[in-house]
């Protein structure tokens, strides 16, 4: 095999892992409150700026930056839940679509107000180091992202299926009213969900910053691709988020290689359409009762 294909494979998996990581945020919210959060991409953007603030401006070490980002986003998650989700709960799909899109716009403009419109750079922790492994160039940041995505997939799966709290969350998603009647504090479940989902989005932002720069324009396209990954992987499926993300990443990179960059997005959307026609339930289709 031509070594260029191996390199393309590595790059495609790397970018796919990023989409997968963002898609996990979607999936968690779909699983517990059954809403699509279109502001999820903007948390990727915001995570970069928050990481930059702790890391570059306040000089925190990398692990502390990650911890602080999780805390900040967990708090933001409760705010998001109170301000965006709770007032609209019970609304239909379109209500939440508009609500979360509005949130995305607000987040973007607030971020511009705080940090200014210029892009910045945050190259922790590897400072753009590249390793040559038998002629294939490996970026350690890619490995870190892939490892984090796999870890989160496993962690989330365990949490939702093997812990009591996870079961409560799934029960709420399946039937909010019944869950409430059975004594589940559905309001708290929503708050917890958004805190977790935003924390994942924020961490993804910190980790993606060395590759995509800390830039106001990072969120929208990445969010859109992650949304495609969510559908392809299987609506609400946790392993599906990763599988869908990797597939979208690979399709994009090979489409660019064999055609031109202009074909990259059309081909990604064509694959989505193909899935919607041939296998609308996605790669990991699950019975409604087992949704995770």
């Amino acid at each position: 095999m031509d070594p260029i294909y191996l390199q393309l494979l590595v790059q495609g998996l790397a970018i796919g892992a990023i989409y997968g990581l963002v898609a996990l945020g979607f999936v968690l919210i779909i699983n517990t409150v059954n809403v699509v959060n279109f502001a999820q991409g903007e948390f990727l953007m915001l995570g970069g700026f928050v990481g930059l603030t702790f890391g570059a401006l306040l000089g925190f070490p990398y692990w502390a930056v990650l911890v602080c980002t999780v805390i900040v986003f967990a708090i933001l998650g409760t705010v998001f839940d109170k301000v965006i989700y709770q007032p609209l709960r019970g609304g239909d799909f379109a209500t939440h679509l508009i609500g979360t899109l509005a949130a995305a716009l607000i987040i973007r403009n607030v971020a511009q107000h705080i940090w200014g419109p210029e892009a910045r750079s945050y190259y922790e922790p590897f400072h753009q180091k590249i390793f040559d492994v038998g002629g294939v160039l490996i970026n350690p940041q890619h490995l870190l992202i892939l490892a984090m995505t796999v870890l989160l997939v496993a962690g989330l799966y365990y949490f939702l299926f093997r812990t009591g709290l996870g079961r409560l969350m799934r029960a709420t998603a399946q039937d909010r009213e019944t869950a409430r009647l059975l004594g589940v504090k559905v309001k708290h479940v929503g708050t917890l969900t958004f805190s977790m989902s935003l924390a994942m989005g924020g961490v993804a932002g910190v980790m993606v910053a060395p590759l995509f720069l800390v830039d106001l324009n990072v969120g929208f396209i990445a969010g859109l691709k992650a949304f495609i990954a969510t559908i392809i992987g299987g609506w609400g499926s946790i392993p599906g988020a990763l599988a869908g993300g990797l597939l979208v990443g690979l399709v994009e990179i090979f489409a660019t290689h064999f055609f031109t960059a202009a074909f990259k997005d059309p081909v990604a959307f064509a694959v989505l359409m193909l899935f919607l026609i041939v296998r609308p339930s996605g790669i990991f289709s699950e019975r409604v009762g087992d949704k995770a």
Binding site: L8, Q11, T256
Partner: peptide, 20 residues
């Protein structure tokens, strides 16, 4: 000769072709 789209964040496929 390679191009990239507005909003693209990963240009590695194009750059690999340039490199070749």
């Amino acid at each position: 000769v390679e191009t990239f789209n507005f909003g693209d964040k990963d240009m590695s496929a194009q750059i690999l072709k340039l490199k070749a």
